[in-house]
Amino acid sequence: MNQDLEKLIAEALTNKSLLVVEDTSSSRMLVAGLLRGLGATRVVAAVDGVDALAKIQAQHLVPDVVLCDWVMPNMDGLELLTRLKADYPAVKFIMMTVKTEAEAVILARKHGVDGYVAKPFSRESITAALAKVLGIAVG
């Protein structure tokens, strides 16, 4: 991985708050751990869309970047995307998904998704998605 890019990401992440939304605990912890490894210091985790909205309201803290699973019980990623973009249009929303089918991508784009991370996750793919939504030029 491009070390300059990782340095820029680390700098950009120091004053950003991130929200990870994923129903499977090991995957949720993995993403949070990878984000911390990239330099994020403020990472909140939620188990589904309902939990995510509750945490945003309870902490009065609108995240700068949301990394969200697509398939979740109670409230899925697409609904959370729609609600967040309606209330907080500045939030950058990254969908983490195996749904790379054209139809799903078009649907998410229509709802304002800012980036994708395809499963399985890696430091590289998360770095690339963060660079995109944070406006950091790659290479």
Partner: peptide
């Protein structure tokens, strides 16, 4: 890769969570 990219304590907690999953 995971051993390279994660704090060892994070990794061990993640694998524990995976066992539960």
């Amino acid at each position: 890769e995971l051993a390279r990219d994660l704090d060892p304590e994070d990794l061990s907690q993640i694998l524990d969570a995976f066992r539960v999953d």
